[in-house]
Design a protein around this nucleic acid. Structure first.
Length: 436
RNA sequence: GAGACAUUAGUGUAGCGGCAGCACAACAGGUUGUGGUCCUGUUAGCAGGGGUUCGAAUCCCCUAUGUCUCCCCA
């Protein structure tokens, strides 16, 4: 017989199954707790936005905008995009709702799906989730540092080991063009020796030259002008302050002068969080060394608001990849508490007791007792087997005889000891046994 | 967008040109109304499509998906 087409989740997407939900829940809880602790309030923005906000925010060179966005035409004719990242949408909401009228800065966080059209691999999906933090309305370097510190706190509260922060400053509209020109001058005479991608980068996004992993390009970079040495006074001081604040809170960081980020809107501080290499386990030997996936990244974006048509408003933000975070948790053997753990199992035998069970089930549930059942099964054997599988402490057995007498059997699963309890007292007795 | 490898029941696997098997899970039983261990049975699979061959899970081609590089990023 020919089977019908087997549907599967679209390429690069996945189902978060019940067995994994506890990890998600744990991360969500920690993120929310840390966020609130630092004065962040939650914001949820639509999954779709006007495609233009990403085009404007990203600039023409951002790869995400260039070829990784899901863009489609809305019925009215506007171009919409599935959001590839969170910051632009949050800034749009900030401007749209006049949040500049609130005491500044405004701190917002979100946990939301993001979409990118690209070739999926482990840790890279077409739909992934980010926990994001945005601090809008204040340019003080203390907030850059606070955000980075929060990364560490989230990591700590999740029990993660060996997070490391890489940080850099990419300057502002004043100093970056000057630097870019110098960088180009350096590279232009050496174009021939670069890999083909870097040849493209020279034209489109010279800063990305710093990021290439090709060996010949890495060598070339050694003598290339350094971004940090070419910051203007303001950016220099800002960056210095960020580092000082980080020192103050004991955040370990590594300066990485080659760190640049994909979105054009970043200014001054940029940073990424990694896992120390030696703690990445699994995978084969080859991938072992290379596997240095960023858990998250972020930076300052003082021009974004203006780019989107609002008043100039400074901001700094960071995103954490939920899937990657959970992946690391699992690798490091971090446990998450189960979300469903029934305490009592209700067994019913016969038509009358099945009916009576329904009401008892409600009573127990309302009393806050987590009660499981297998009403669809009629044999006591099968029901007790289910009870056993669920690992309940007690089972309640309501047979025909008990139903008529107004009692119920209470079975302690570990010992197998059973006793008869009056129906009216069941809830109370169980509560006592569970020490509720 | 380019390259490499992979895909056998829900899961993990064996079979490498000659009968598609095993384990776990699920479901039903092992005489009356009692779980875990044990036993029996049932359900369920060669990713899809072509080709080579007397014969294909096995060899070849195409497609899809996954994993890994590149690219880029969370």
């Amino acid at each position: 017989m020919k089977t019908k087409k087997q549907f599967q989740s679209p390429k690069g997407t996945f189902d978060i199954l019940p067995e994994d939900q506890k990890y998600w829940e744990k991360v969500r809880k920690v993120v929310a707790r840390v966020a609130l602790g630092y004065g962040f309030e939650r914001i949820d923005t639509p999954i779709i936005e006007d495609a233009d906000i990403y085009a404007l925010a990203g600039g023409e060179t951002a790869d995400v905008v260039e070829k990784q966005m899901y863009v489609f035409k809305s019925k009215g004719g506007d171009m919409l995009a599935l959001r590839p990242e969170g910051t632009a949408g949050v800034m749009r909401a900030f401007l749209e709702h006049g949040m500049a009228q609130l005491p500044q800065p405004v701190k917002l966080y979100y946990i939301a799906p993001m979409f990118r059209y690209e070739q999926p691999q482990a840790g890279r999906y077409r739909q992934h989730h980010q926990a994001g933090f945005e601090i809008i309305g204040d340019q003080d370097p203390v907030y850059d540092a606070q955000l980075i510190h929060m990364y560490l706190v989230v990591g700590e509260e999740l029990g993660l080991k060996s997070l490391s922060i890489e940080i850099n400053s990419i300057g502002c509209a004043k100093c970056r063009p000057t630097y870019r020109a110098q960088l180009l001058r350096y590279y232009r005479s050496r174009t021939a020796k670069l890999c083909k991608d870097c040849k493209r980068r020279i034209k489109k996004n010279p800063l990305r030259l710093l990021d290439c992993k090709e060996e010949k390009c890495e060598q070339m970079r050694v003598n290339a002008p350094n971004l940090i040495d070419h910051l203007c006074q303001e950016c220099h001081d800002h960056f210095k302050n960020v580092l000082e604040y980080l020192d103050e809170t004991g955040v370990p960081y590594v300066l990485n002068p080659h760190l640049v980020r994909g979105f054009d809107y970043y200014t001054k501080t940029v940073f990424e969080v990694f896992l120390e290499d030696e703690h990445i386990e699994g995978g084969n030997e080859k991938t072992h060394q290379r596997a240095k996936l960023a858990l998250g990244g972020g930076g300052r974006y003082d021009y974004l608001a203006k780019t989107l048509g609002g008043r100039e408003t400074p901001g700094v933000g960071a995103g954490l990849g939920m899937e990657r975070l959970i992946g690391v948790m699992k690798k490091q053997g971090i446990k998450a508490p189960p979300l469903y753990k029934p305490e009592v199992f209700l067994v019913q035998l016969g038509v009358l007791s099945k009916k009576k069970s329904l009401r008892l089930f409600e009573e127990l549930r309302k009393a806050g007792i987590v009660v499981a059942e297998a009403f669809g099964k009629d044999s006591i054997k099968a029901q007790l087997r289910s009870a056993d599988r669920l690992g309940v402490k007690m089972s309640l057995i309501l047979g025909q005889k008990e139903a008529i007498d107004g009692v119920i059997l209470l079975r302690e699963m570990e010992t197998g000891a059973q006793e008869s309890v009056e129906m009216e007292k069941v809830v109370k007795v169980i509560k006592e046994r569970l020490k509720k």
